[in-house]
Design a protein around this nucleic acid. Sequence first.
DNA 1: CGTGATCTTGATGCTCATCAAGGCTAGTGG
DNA 2: CCACTAGCCTTGATGAGCATCAAGATCACG
Lengths: 234, 234
Amino acid sequence: MLSDRTIIRPSRSAELIARRFADLAVLTEREQELVRMAASRPEAQTTGAELSGPSLLTSGWACRRARLADGSRQIFAFLVPGDLFDGRRLTGRARNGVFALTPVETISASPLLEAVDDVDLHHGLADAIEAMRTEQEKLLLDHIVRLGSLTAYERLAHLILDLRERLARIGLADEHRLPMPLTQETLADALGLSVVHVNRTLQQLRRERLIELRGGVAMLPDPNGLADLCGFET
Amino acid sequence: MLSDRTIIRPSRSAELIARRFADLAVLTEREQELVRMAASRPEAQTTGAELSGPSLLTSGWACRRARLADGSRQIFAFLVPGDLFDGRRLTGRARNGVFALTPVETISASPLLEAVDDVDLHHGLADAIEAMRTEQEKLLLDHIVRLGSLTAYERLAHLILDLRERLARIGLADEHRLPMPLTQETLADALGLSVVHVNRTLQQLRRERLIELRGGVAMLPDPNGLADLCGFET
DNA sequence: CGTGATCTTGATGCTCATCAAGGCTAGTGG
DNA sequence: CCACTAGCCTTGATGAGCATCAAGATCACG
């Protein structure tokens, strides 16, 4: 008999992915079946792996990032379970890619993408994938707002609320609590700040009882206060 | 007899748009015909107009931007002739939209977008539109790099080279020369800087003979120097 | 010829980067 | 079991980059 792990893990992925798709569009029975099939056998990768895709992340965190000529790194977006990515088509230059920030599991999205434009029956699937792309563009715009218009203090608050919202939709966060596996260096690379300044800014947020960090989990005692201070809109 | 203006303007738009599509994908005769038809009668709008779309810009400049709660403005991207936009579907919040920075002319993109998914024959058109979307995502990523990883000096150089490249592809710029109708305030809103600092930084670029601005035209005596200073890759 | 938009300049100080060093924790090998 | 190492977090000192405020200059246009 197979171990619990082999049986339960894949089905959890499948459930998460199914919920994600249901959240984005109305799927037919047949489409739901396709999604579950695709999600049944995730592939594991370790922290630091370069992910290729097109795939769906089913567990762990990753990011889209560029490495710049001077050796620095700019993170464009964080990827959490349920997110679609394509490390190859990652637009433009060579030095861009998708990077695993924790151990991750992925499934190939090819079957789903092909189902969309081969047959013309899978409107729900097509809608869901279109909705994912639209949402990822919105996330890029939000990130531009953070970098272009917010202070360090506001950037951190805004990013954390952004992540909380996305994680809550797939059942991995609630109003006051979210996983936070990102190092301060990673936050710095995303937010266009130095590590030192991220550290000090986080301390300020803690002092003001807006966020607590312990063991890879962030607690938000006052999410509305956080949202007000950075102009975050749900 | 109709005036020169009525006859020539539309055909110029059509030609520019046709060139733009040809640059992005290989089109059949029939597809080229569709594009020319769509581009034959542009609609004019004045500076400051809110553009709805889905449309193609055929002349003038526009931008995608958000208005923030505190009254400030963040520009996400500049749109130049040949660019596709959709002011309605502009992802997320209400306060986002497409804004005409100069007098503009647009054509509706609906006929082309519908041709793509109604019939399944127009692979070239579908490819071209997909390529436009991919390119616009690349432009957003480049903008994130500017805001997150570059100094004011580098941001300006990088943005100008970015615009030059895009304008050159549609025949509106060459290596040493591009139209530059943007005010310093507009540049500031795009680059996350104050107007005052944009002004001083432009002066520095002028002092170092990297850029000259006169009458809405930018001259770049040393494009390679500019590219080196900001890590711009063609 | 006046009026509003745009560009320019100077003065001042806050935000944030940088440099340098020390501490904490978890994992590793002797 | 303990020294050792490698990440990661933290702290202090210093200064650069850029914002802000205020005012004047220039330009475009009716």
